[in-house]
Design a protein around this nucleic acid. Sequence first.
DNA 1: TAGATTGTTAATCGATTAACAATC
DNA 2: TAGATTGTTAATCGATTAACAATC
Lengths: 235, 235
Amino acid sequence: MNTEKQSMEGTLRESDSRSTVPAAVIKRLPRYFRYLRELIRMDKTRVSSAELSEMMNVTASQIRQDLNCFGGFGQQGYGYNVQYLYAKICEILGVNHGFRAAVVGAGNLGKALVRSPMFERRGVSVVALFDIDREVVGTTVGDAPVLPMEQLEEMLCELAVDLVILTLPKTCADEVASRLVNTGLRGVWNFTGKELDLRHSGIVVENVHIGDSLMTLCYEVARGDLLTDEKREDV
Amino acid sequence: MNTEKQSMEGTLRESDSRSTVPAAVIKRLPRYFRYLRELIRMDKTRVSSAELSEMMNVTASQIRQDLNCFGGFGQQGYGYNVQYLYAKICEILGVNHGFRAAVVGAGNLGKALVRSPMFERRGVSVVALFDIDREVVGTTVGDAPVLPMEQLEEMLCELAVDLVILTLPKTCADEVASRLVNTGLRGVWNFTGKELDLRHSGIVVENVHIGDSLMTLCYEVARGDLLTDEKREDV
DNA sequence: TAGATTGTTAATCGATTAACAATC
DNA sequence: TAGATTGTTAATCGATTAACAATC
């Protein structure tokens, strides 16, 4: 396992096919990441696609197909080495790329995110927060200082921030977004609810709409009602 | 527009094909919901699939196909009536179904969610929060009281709670989840990071993994680097 | 070697897009 | 009526699953 040859293959193929990895596969990678962490926590050293498929409630075929987009991470007759596979997936996902992040909007959501273990787990360090409220400016959240909004552009440059997390009201989204370009920023994680597009500035935006997930839940629950009603009528 | 005949058709088809609506369509409905709200805010009374497709960056064909899963909501030569379409989508999604929700874990995330306009917009009312911390028990968040964890089962029944929002650490997820069955609960919106499955109890679970979205962002940003490197090498 | 399990091809399934006749 | 735009069918595309030969 984890021989030089295999390691080579993984790296090579990844590089060859990078642009051809289906979007559907990319969206599933974070879930593999989570389950592999779980396996590591359980001190499992190897896992087969069949085992993993049972844990994750997907087909073993899909797992092998997905992982093969990036090269041969497994070994016939053995399965996958958990540590090696985890390392590979981290590599693909840019974990431990050492990204530096700043939170704009030090309200409940901003603070909740910073205090969660999420960033550390993904090798992202939060270096500052920004807020207009003079009450919170000067305090710290986790290890990061809360700075005044006036210093936004200046400090994003100075602190060499790669990612900005927008946790402020929808109404401020456009104004703040316009201040982010030309600061060397490379990604925006946008919780404002206003969909942003900064591709023209070469900035990747990930728009989060938590409410969409609430609606999906409501749909499922409401549909449960309707199906029950229908059955009652049908009989 | 909005004739009796059309309204009939909509209702009928919705009922006929309910179980055959593709999952991909359902996942897109909340986004239609958001853009239709936007159109209402802009006082637009009608919209064509072409207009909407430009706003939303999808094909007009997809919009017509999606909406037709539920029946004829539009009119040839005219387009769609914004109010009517919005009402129909709300109906499908269970908005204004009058669901009652409770938050378990009154930390930063719990408070941030309750204070956001999200629930009100979707016709969901938050009737209580629960926490172990005696410091916060007795306070209110928004209009809802924070109650002690000991009263969880009892109060979920008494308050006729439909949906529970779990905003507590992963470590407590299983223990709390087991206390939720047999309280008349119908849906769980789960932010703990521990994937739950309560189908055996007839409870729908929506597992939220915010970190997955952060990883997608990191992937895109890291990929940007690699593509640039490659180009440099290729030349 | 025999057994296990991957990597990979081919078959199936579902989702998206294009096109146009129906119709308001 | 003429113009616009939907509803709907057919064609394309992509993603998932099944199957099995390769191989550890």
